[in-house]
């Protein structure tokens, strides 16, 4: 790695100590940059190339359970067998398309609910007396540090047929027979909203707290009612926080596996669950890889482009 430094862009550095220092600095920089760079190349980039490669191979009942893409057929002939079947399957089998669309739907609706619950909370914290803001915020973050798995598990005890919520509803007489809540899409929504709510509140709080309150005073002076002022001033100003929070909830929710697996029913289709069962239950590594590649192209790539674009505009706005 040759690091170009702002100072070394000068045409010809004088030979001697200056050159030696520049060279030394260059080596020093390479030494600093090398470990993380190499690590990410080897353990992050290359694995995806391997996933791509295996998504084009054929499954077989062996170890490893796929046919190698490249093979020497002797006589200096390199044989390449590309199997496009995995991708054909992906688009022809309704299961995959349905799972993908359903993941988007579940993540989208959950994000809206996070927004509806998180906005009033973030607003209340941001307008609370200054001394209690930090403790209130810490109370929002605290559950995030306890195990995610345990928080999802906690809902199993609440939502199941003989669970706490059903017992409570039966006791109050609102219902007369237990409701099926666990193993439904409803439980998945609850689980996602519950797990990702802090991610919505934090960025919302950050934008609401920074807001210039004199704008509201100005609106009030001009005869604007508080609710109208909220709609016309506060709400538009908090859009960046809403976008950031929604991204933080939506992105992980789409690829979620643990929540639909534990709280959802057998007919709760989500793309993460499909990938898991292709891999662990069917042992079809090529199909699982093809699902992963499709997810990358259809989900992760657009998000990264969007974020890149957003960073650009926010930097330009500064």
């Amino acid at each position: 790695m040759t690091a170009t430094t702002p100072s070394s862009t000068a045409p010809h550095p004088r030979p001697g100590p200056a050159l030696r220092a520049a060279l030394l600095r260059r080596w020093g920089r390479a030494l600093v940059g090398m470990p993380p760079y190499a690590w990410l190349l080897l353990f992050f980039l290359i694995p995806f190339l391997i996933v791509l490669k295996i998504s084009f191979s054929e499954p077989q009942a062996a170890i490893p359970p796929y046919v190698p893409l490249f093979s020497w057929a002797g006589d200096q002939i390199l044989q390449i067998r590309l199997n496009l079947g995995n991708y054909g399957y992906l688009f022809s089998d309704e299961l995959y398309v349905a799972a993908y669309l359903n993941s988007l739907k579940i993540a989208g609706i959950s994000t809206v609910f996070c927004l509806l619950i998180g906005y009033p909370m973030a607003y209340a914290i941001a307008r609370a007396p200054k001394t209690v803001r930090n403790p209130l915020l810490m109370l929002v973050v605290l559950p995030f540090w306890t195990s995610f798995l345990i928080r999802v598990y906690a809902w199993m005890g609440i939502l199941k047929n003989e669970g706490l919520l059903n017992s409570f509803l039966l006791w109050t007489g609102i219902i007369h027979a237990p409701l099926q809540m666990l193993e439904t899409d409803f439980a998945v929504y609850v689980g996602i909203v519950y797990s990702y709510l802090p991610f919505m509140i934090l960025p919302l709080y950050a934008t609401l707290e920074k807001m210039d309150l004199s704008l509201l005073e100005a609106a009030a002076d001009l005869g604007c009612r508080p609710f109208r002022a909220f709609l016309n001033v506060t709400l538009p100003l908090s859009i960046p926080g809403m976008v950031a929070g929604s991204m933080l909830v939506f992105i992980p929710a789409v690829g979620e596996f643990v929540i639909p697996d534990l709280l959802g029913g057998p007919d709760t289709l989500m793309i993460g669950k499909v990938l898991w069962s292709e891999f662990f239950d069917n042992r079809d590594w090529p199909a699982a890889s093809a699902v992963a590649v499709a997810m990358l192209v259809l989900l992760v790539a657009p998000i990264m482009v969007f974020q890149h674009y957003q960073n650009k505009t926010s930097e330009a706005g500064r």
């Binding site: 891999f279 992760v300 974020q307």
Partner: peptide, 26 residues
């Protein structure tokens, strides 16, 4: 500025948005 900076930034931000299930498989 250094060669491959865009790639490096990409490799730093990608794991933040990558579904765990894909990282695990890869």
């Amino acid at each position: 500025r250094f060669p491959g900076r865009t790639l490096f930034t990409g490799m730093i931000t990608a794991p933040l948005v990558m579904p765990e299930i894909i990282t695990g498989l890869a």
